[in-house]
Each structure stands twice: as structure tokens, then as C-alpha cells.
Amino acid sequence: MDEISTIFYNQSFTTRVEQNGLQLMTVGVKIEDGVAELVDSLASKEKRVKSLIQKKRYFTEYLNTLTPRDKMQLINEYLNANPSFDEVDLLAEEVYREIEEIEEAITFMSGLEPDIIPPRELDNQMLEDDFNYMIEALGV
């Protein structure tokens, strides 16, 4: 959010004179338009951050329901960058389904209809990409 504010405040707010053919015109920044855009951008970022915090909370709650052995297996496979994607195991599939459920719940909470995606056969690359994206986004 600081980045958005920095971009806004780093622009020049001075009025200047420009020549347009034979005319001289004063040109200035329309503060009201810039402020409205800034407020919208900040509100959008804040909503996204709240959404990610909710996702992290729900995923953490799910992880706390796992047995210590299962949790350790996930940590060893995904967080320690030591995944074994030879075969999709039941735990990885269960975690993936939970992630999909969390995504759907957050979408409903936002007042949107989630995309209806038919169940699909999971492959190793898709699981790895989606799981790594979720881990990275949640900072787990």
C-alpha cells in the first residue's frame, strides 16, 4: 500500500504552461481524480490483504486438524523444497481439495459466485504449482 501512495505523492502537483499551436494553456493535475483513484487503489489492496489473511487463518486451522505425522510430511515435502511428486498421495489430494474449498468460501464471502469447475483428475505438476502458490501467498 505504501507503493501506491508513493507513486501518487511522487508526481508533480504544480501547474505549468504549455503551448498548443498558437495558444498558451495552463495545465495542472486534477487532484480530485487522482485522489479518487488513490482511494480506490488503497481500498482494493486492503480488501485483498484481508482476503489473504482469512485464507491463511482457514488454512492454518485446517493444518491444525492434521495429525502431527501428516503435518510433518507436508512440511518435509513442500516447505523444505523436498517434494516427491512421483505419485499424488491421499494427503496431498486432501490438502488440495481443502485449498479449493477455502478459495470457494472466500469467494462467497466476497459476495461473488465462484466459478463452477467440474471435478478434475489431479496431476502432479498441477498440485505442485497450486500448492506452492498457496504456500507462498499465505506465507506459511
Rank of each mutant, 00 (worst) to 15 (best):
A105D: 15
E87K: 05
A43K: 14
E87I: 05
N20L: 07
D86C: 13
T107M: 10
V27F: 07
E121P: 12
A36Q: 12
G139D: 07
T65C: 07
E37G: 04
I102K: 00
A36C: 04
R97G: 08
R16G: 13
V39C: 07
D2C: 08
V29F: 11
E18K: 11
E46C: 12
A81Y: 15
V27L: 01
T14I: 07
E103L: 08
N76H: 13
G28K: 10
E32C: 01
I116N: 04
K45L: 08
K71T: 08
F108E: 07
I75S: 08
E61T: 03
S44L: 13
S12I: 00
L52W: 02
R97H: 13
D70W: 04
S41K: 12
D123K: 00
P114I: 01
K30D: 10
L90Q: 13
E98F: 05
T26M: 07
V29T: 14
K50A: 15
K45A: 14
T15G: 02
N64T: 13
L90S: 12
L91V: 03
A81I: 09
Y78K: 02
M1K: 09
T107V: 06
N82F: 06
K47E: 10
N80L: 09
I102E: 02
V140Q: 07
K55I: 03
S44I: 07
Q23A: 14
D33H: 09
R57G: 09
V29N: 06
M126D: 15
T14L: 10
L90G: 14
E103T: 12
E3S: 08
L52M: 04
D33L: 04
E61S: 05
V29Y: 09
Q19A: 14
I106H: 02
N132Y: 06
T107F: 06
N82E: 09
V88P: 06
L66P: 00
E87A: 06
E18N: 03
R48Y: 13
P83K: 01
T65P: 00
A81G: 08
T15N: 14
V88K: 00
A105M: 10
T26K: 03
L122W: 01
I53V: 15
E136F: 15
F131K: 04
L66F: 03
R97I: 05
Q19W: 04
K47L: 14
R97M: 05
I53N: 09
Q125Y: 14
E98S: 14
E104V: 08
E136C: 12
K55F: 03
S44D: 12
G34V: 01
G28E: 14
E94W: 10
L24C: 03
Q54R: 11
D123T: 00
N76D: 10
D130P: 12
S84K: 11
S44A: 14
S41R: 06
E37R: 10
D129L: 06
G111Y: 02
V95Y: 00
L138M: 05
F85N: 14
S84A: 14
N132M: 04
L74M: 13
Y9G: 01
F59K: 01
N124I: 15
D129E: 05
S84F: 08
D89T: 01
R48N: 11
D86K: 09
L24F: 12
T107N: 03
I4R: 02
Q11N: 02
I135Y: 03
E121V: 12
L74A: 01
V39N: 09
